[in-house]
Each structure stands twice: as structure tokens, then as C-alpha cells.
Design a binder for these strands. Structure first.
Lengths: 187, 187
DNA sequence: GTCTATAAACGGATAGAC
DNA sequence: GTCTATCCGTTTATAGAC
């Protein structure tokens, strides 16, 4: 049972609050109450909300991308997609949250520029990885799609993000496998 | 050139602001500035923010669903999907907005219950309509998908919502046709 | 209907004591 | 590092004059 520093606790709760309520839906007050410190202590670690959220995005992004890159590329492409969908879907089980970057993408018009950039980078990394898997799936004959792998990957990633949104909207019924399934070639 | 009442102007601007910035991203003050009245005048028409947003959702929903139902069901299913995608995509051109209900779905954890209900109703109506079109497409042989029409319709609607999100994120490049295309059977 | 005035809580943020 | 105290603008909302 590791003891977290205040800084780590703040960052953790910030990530959860963003996933649940968005950039404009939480405050330093909320965090202070959750961690059990005063708001001024949070300002000590993160001078402005922009600093806090930027670090929250980077932390989230690093972890999520690392998990994605850890998927064994020697597996069949459809199996890789299945794993990807599962790790994506863990967000639903853990506290009815959606993807932190999906949430921020919705609020993009209200975000500091550095944060917006980080969100775009996360989307792009996912789309690039998916394109690689789709190309592999086409070669193996395990997946079927129209157009280029890049086009199909963008559509697929959008479907994952939207599916997470809809799953939470209808109270946690996981619809992500429906998405991965839609490209699979039926036996 | 019809002259809009103050009430109508408020409702119009509220819809735009929600689509651009979300429920937690705009204030009575923003609206007052846009319409050229004081905030107290807005409270006269809409006592609380909940009243305002609920009516904004209902107005938006009625218009969007009416447009959807107006799509000629005697057309080929893939043509119907194309029209659906186009009317969906009009949001991007008109001021870099996404679907009002897609935005609110992201903020669902912060919404008054009546608003949340209206958002769910909108999603459901779209999914039901899409399922009907997909069933037709399967019968005609113009569309191909795995699983039941209902399952595929949920995945497809998620893809449209997510695609809108991503299109705006990357500055208005319309990716919605990529989604509609993904189900089309290649000639 | 629209305004002025005002309330009360909240928002992000800082100075300075300990 | 964490706190108290405080600043100042914002947000939602109401009372009451015109």
C-alpha cells in the first residue's frame, strides 16, 4: 500500500474529475475537498489550472499510449483490436468515466492552447496505431474495411470515442465490442 | 427578414454556445452581451439555467429529428445514410460546432436530470432510425454489417458522433463521409 | 418587458505567517 | 509545504423601479 504524496493525489483526482465532469466542470475547491488540503496548497504544486490540466493530460496520455503500444503486434489484428477495445472500456467500469481526451475534445473551444495541442496529439497517436493494425488485418485477411487503412482508422477511432460516450450515457452498458466486431470478417 | 423576439434570440444563441462551449462553458452574461440586453431580462424568460438549456435541447432535438425523418425512405439505404451524414455534418460548417446532444452527453455528470433525459431520448431516436435504414440496406444488398441492425446502428451512431468531435478537433476537415462509406458495399 | 441594484456563493489566484 | 486571510471578478438569481 504505497502512500501517495499530496501532489500525486491531486493529479489523480484531477484526472478523474476531468473524465467525469470536464475542464469547466471542476474547481480547485473540489480537489481540495477530495484530498483534504486547502486550495492554496494545490496552487503551490500547480500555479494555474492550465498547469494542472496539462500535466493531467500528459500523465493520462503517457499511460494510455504505453498500454496501447504494449499490445503484442504478433497477434492477429482482430485480437489486437479486441485488447485495445478492452483497455479502452476499462474507463467505464472504473467510475463511469470516458476518455479524458475525448472529454477535452468536446470542450476544445474553451481550452488553453497547450492543452488543446496535447489532446490532438493523443488522438493522432491512436489513429496512427489503429491504421497500422488495420493494414495488418487486411493483409492477414482477418479484417475488412473500405478505403485506406488511414481513413478507416480515423472512422474506427471516432467510433470508439463515440461508443464510450454512448455507453456511459446509457449507464455503463459496454458497447465497445460492437465497434470492434463491426470490422471482423465473419467465420 | 423576420425580426426575432428577444426570447428567440436568446434561445438561438444558447444553442450555439452549448454546441461550441458546453453547458458549463457559457453564462447568462455571455448571452446578455450577444443579444444586447441585461441578464435579468433573460431570467424573465428563463428563470433558471436548467429551464433555458432544457428548452434549447428540445428545440434542437425537434429540428434535427424532423430533418432526419424527412429523408425519403424510398431511396436506397446507402443514399439515405449519405443524406443523414450530410445534415449531421452541416454543424461543422456552421461555426465549428458539434451536435448539441453529443456535447451534453460528454457533460452528462453535471446536468440537471430533465436535461439528461432529453439527451438520452435524442440518442435513442437516432439509433432507432438508423437501425431501420440498416435493416433496409441489408435487404436491398446496398449495405453490409455484422450482427443485428440494432447493434450496428448503435456502433454507427457512435461513429458519427465521434467523427464530428474529431473533425472539429482537427479544424473542420469533414470526416463524416468516411463513416458512412465504411458500411457501403464496394462496386 | 427591461432596467438598476444587490445578494450570496463560487472561481482562480496571491501574500505572508508558521 | 501548508495554512489563514484576502482579493477581485464571475455566476446565478431576486427585488423592485420604470
Amino acid at each position: 500500500m504505497e502512500t501517495q504524496t499530496v501532489r500525486e493525489q491531486v493529479l489523480d483526482h484531477a484526472q478523474t474529475l476531468i473524465k467525469q465532469r470536464g475542464y469547466n466542470g471542476f474547481s480547485y475547491r473540489d480537489l481540495a475537498k477530495l484530498v483534504g488540503v486547502k486550495t492554496s496548497s494545490i496552487h503551490y504544486y500547480f500555479p494555474g489550472k492550465e498547469d494542472l490540466v496539462l500535466e493531467a493530460v500528459n500523465t493520462y496520455s503517457s499511460a494510455a499510449l504505453a498500454e496501447m503500444y504494449a499490445i503484442d503486434s504478433s497477434l492477429c489484428a482482430d485480437k489486437q483490436l479486441e485488447r485495445y477495445a478492452r483497455s479502452f472500456g476499462r474507463l467505464l467500469v472504473e467510475g463511469n468515466t470516458i476518455c479524458l481526451c475525448g472529454m477535452l475534445a468536446a470542450e476544445i473551444g474553451t481550452l488553453p492552447e497547450h492543452v488543446a495541442l496535447a489532446v490532438r496529439g493523443f488522438f493522432n497517436a491512436n489513429e496512427v496505431w489503429l491504421a497500422k493494425v488495420l493494414a495488418q488485418g487486411a493483409q492477414e485477411g482477418s479484417l475488412r474495411f473500405n478505403g485506406s487503412p488511414e481513413r478507416a482508422a480515423r472512422a474506427l477511432y471516432a467510433a470508439f470515442q463515440g461508443s464510450l460516450l454512448a455507453s456511459r450515457l446509457f449507464q455503463g452498458k459496454d458497447r465497445l465490442n460492437e465497434v470492434a466486431l463491426s470490422l471482423k470478417i465473419q467465420p
